[in-house]
Design a protein around this nucleic acid. Structure first.
Length: 776
DNA sequence: TGCGGTGAATTTTTT
DNA sequence: ATTCACCGCA
């Protein structure tokens, strides 16, 4: 049996005979516009290559050109190339660019995807080797947590002392390091060890029973298979002639082992990464992987991409000065051909509210074009914060003065409760054995099946060795519950049988999905719900149905969603972006604001407490990532007082501020009576004082701000230009964030609204709608 | 089952 | 501040 053979391949193999000369003669358009280093990275095809690609040095360009080159030179057929990324977004981007490079000249596609999606494909072929059926389901974090909770309850373990979350985290950590239960070192994780390993074993056993894997298993199982079955590994080693890895600094140990196993034959592996941008250590990434590359792969060619095409010299200089404070780096010297540009700006404020107000004004100034600079579109501006709770101050401020913004990241569409519930219904219809899904929705919406009923079902299933669904059938057949509960349960089972029959009879699956949500009463559950979120949830469910459109069938949809938990950002409006520094990796903006540079917040105290100097260095890399997102303008700010968890905290400027080279920084004096006192720890500010500028109001920054202040406040908001309904006093309105409220004052576009779930706030008319006609 | 009160926790996030 | 889980009561 050659079930290890890669399906898509065979037709191609017969169809296209390769001739090296013929291929080599083809035009190589993709080489155009590459600098020498990039060219070298593209053309060094044999053996291990480490492409050290600093921020903004065109690594994706080089990576995709390399794929094109491999194909054009006839080194490999498309499906003999394996290209791995971390995120679906990166994978998609690369696919597009590869397709563009090749311009349809080559048939077939490379194996291009995330570690996880590629592992799913492989594991489906070999599932039986790890005791799974090839129809295994993939649990996401939420499922995983529920399972762990069940397990802990079943074991009668005190949830207070052993929180499921913590245990799930520990197990995840082990999986990230490719440790199966038997390989967990003794003395690991302190007091959780003994019990932890036991629970790990039981957890794995439960997964096997459920015919399910979690994300960590996808890698772990494949590593195990490769290690236990050398013949299988050998087939893949021969198959994947060239391997490319993006963001190598983010790989964890399991991913590293997986790659090394696959590459150990021909060693044609090209890893791209930047040790200075490793910011995911806390979830198992090992910077060590990239630092060790030359040892792991002797004879590796190291190519440094150091020409930066993104930022001005001042921005690069500031970033370089900062990151230089980290030890154990591979070291790169970024340079650019750009003009000098503006210095980074640094400013301190009294508190977070003031900081948000100031940033808001600056955004308006940039948008309008200030200090003789070209106007900047809101789309080209971003606020990057360390922790998501910092976003609030900005959202509140922007909302009340009408700066359009968008928050990137945060809870995702497919992680919302209502979406997960709906999909659990679909999952049970498609695969009746999906116990996790069945448990989730058997009493959702409420059907009078409480704890007692669920436990009876679980017990019945366990004792008869069947899935919860079949267990429920037995419960009904044997009348193991009170009549009411039995009837209710029977109703659920019959519904599922009916839907399943419809599915097998070839009913239109989109219509069926709607029917399921209607007949199950799930849609009504939310339609009848009076809470603020309910309307949004109903809309999300409709959105979910719409999303089905682009799939062939329910199965396809579910498989896709289990790995791609993201929602497409589809709005073209001009908006300022607000996101965390982590979410900003890989992005770039002409104008960047970096607020909240206070010791304890950034670098985060917790990070430093938990991981000491390593933690601080990772925070510093995060700062580096932040600064290097900026193309032209970068503004760093900090406050003296921050409201955290309802408590006012005194804050000192971040130690990172001290590390910014003066030559690239312009210190602004804050606009306010309390100016000049905050930067005591910042050398630049001290320096300015030492230079005798005791009168902070004569500093260049203040002068500039004063000039601006002389003008009438600008109010250019697109949002208002849209048809904004006219409101009356006392009218009931709905606001996306604050919910329902009544209008208590009107001042032009500004409404004072007394919110039911919050206090009275001033918001722009464009942000609310009449209660009742909520647009989504 | 469902409500309201209480107490505790509270970075970063992909798959 | 706010969220979230849990508990006790109707």
């Amino acid at each position: 049996m050659n079930d290890w053979e890669l399906g898509e391949s065979e037709a191609f193999e017969a169809a296209v005979p390769l001739s090296q000369q013929a291929m080599a003669a083809r035009p190589k358009a993709y080489l155009q516009g590459l600098n020498p280093a990039q060219k070298q990275a593209v053309e060094t095809l044999d053996g291990p290559v480490l492409m050290l690609a600093g921020a903004g040095t065109g690594k994706t360009k080089a990576l995709t050109a390399r794929i094109a080159h491999l194909l054009q030179c006839g080194r490999a057929r498309p499906n003999e190339i394996l290209a791995v990324t971390f995120t679906n977004k990166a994978a998609r981007e690369m696919k597009e660019r590869v397709a563009k490079n090749l311009g349809g000249t080559v048939e077939g596609v490379p194996w291009l995807g995330t570690f996880h999606s590629i592992c799913v494909k492989l594991l489906r072929r070999h599932a039986e080797l790890v005791g799974l059926k090839n129809s295994f389901t993939i649990l996401d974090t939420d499922d995983q947590l529920r399972l762990m909770k069940q397990l802990i309850q079943a074991e009668k373990i005190d949830e207070k002392r052993y929180p499921p979350r913590l245990l799930a985290g520990i197990i995840d950590g082990w999986k990230n390091r490719a440790l199966t239960p038997s390989k967990v070192p003794a003395g690991e994780a302190g007091k959780y060890n003994r019990r932890g390993v036991e629970l790990y074993e039981q957890y794995q056993a439960r997964l096997t029973t459920l015919n399910a894997v979690d994300f960590g298993d996808l890698l772990l199982h494949m590593v195990q298979i490769f290690q236990a079955y050398p013949d299988i590994l050998a087939q893949y080693q021969r198959w994947f002639k060239y391997i490319l890895v993006d963001e190598y600094q983010d790989t964890n140990i399991a991913q590293y082992l997986w790659l090394r196993l696959l590459a150990s034959g021909h060693k044609n592996i090209c890893c791209v990464g930047d040790d200075d941008q490793s910011i995911y250590g806390w979830r198992g990434a090992e910077v060590g992987n990239i630092l060790r590359f030359e040892k792991d792969f002797p004879g590796a060619h190291v190519v440094r991409l150091e020409q930066n095409y993104r930022s001005t010299p001042h921005i690069l200089g500031a970033a370089a000065g900062l990151i230089d404070h980290n030890g154990g780096r591979l070291g790169k010297t970024l340079w650019t051909a750009e003009k000098e540009g503006e210095k980074l700006r640094l400013i301190g404020h009294w508190d977070g509210e003031e900081e948000a107000r100031w940033v808001g004004e600056e955004i308006e100034a940039y948008q309008r074009g200030t200090r003789g600079l070209e106007p900047v579109s809101p789309n080209d501006m971003a606020i990057l914060v360390r922790a998501s709770h910092q976003m609030r101050a900005f959202e509140d401020r922007f909302m009340s003065i009408g700066i359009p913004y968008r928050v990137i990241g945060g809870p995702r569409f497919y992680e919302r409760m209502e979406i997960r519930d709906a999909m659990a219904y679909f999952r049970v219809v498609v695969s009746p054995d999906d116990g996790m899904a069945f448990d989730r929705i058997v009493n959702t919406p409420k059907r009078g099946l409480g704890d007692k009923a669920l436990q009876t079902v679980a017990k019945m299933a366990r004792e008869n060795g069947v899935s919860p669904f079949e267990g429920a059938r037995l419960v009904v057949a044997e009348k193991a519950l009170p009549a009411r509960a039995c009837n209710s349960l029977d109703g659920v089972l019959q519904s599922f049988d009916r839907w399943r029959a419809a599915l097998h009879n070839g009913a239109d699956f989109i219509r069926l999905a709607e029917t399921i949500l209607d007949e199950s009463g799930y849609m009504d559950r939310w339609k009848n719900d009076k809470s603020i979120e309910a309307e949004g949830r109903v809309e999300n469910l409709k959105e979910l149905i719409k999303a089905l459109d682009s799939f062939e069938n329910l199965q396809g949809f579910l498989e896709h969603v289990s790995l791609v938990m993201e929602n497409a950002q589809t709005d073209s409006e001009e908006k300022v972006s607000i996101m965390t520094l982590h979410a900003a990796k890989g992005l770039e903006f002409p104008c960047v604001f970096l607020p909240g540079w206070e010791d304890g917040l950034f670098p985060s105290q917790r990070s430093m407490d938990e991981s000491g100097i390593k933690g601080e260095e990772e925070e510093r890399r995060l700062a580096y990532v932040g600064i290097t997102r900026a193309e032209k303008y970068c503004t760093i700010s900090f406050v003296a007082n921050r409201l955290l968890h309802g408590r006012w905290q005194n804050a000192l400027p971040s130690r990172f501020i001290d590390e910014l080279p003066q030559a690239h920084v312009e210190v602004l004096t804050p606009p306010g009576l309390y100016g000049g006192n905050f930067g005591a720890a910042a050398p630049e500010i001290r320096l300015e004082t030492r230079a005798g500028q005791t009168d902070t109001y004569s500093s260049p920054g203040w002068q500039r701000l004063k000039r601006q202040a002389g003008r009438p406040a600008p109010r250019p908001h697109q949002i208002i230009e849209d048809a904004v309904p006219v409101f009356d006093l006392g009218e009931r309105v709905f606001h996306q964030k604050f919910g329902y409220g009544a209008i208590v004052s009107i001042d032009g576009d500004k409404l004072g609204v007394s919110f039911e779930k919050s206090d009275t706030k001033n918001v722009m008319a464009g942000y609310v709608t009449r209660a009742g006609d909520v647009p989504f």
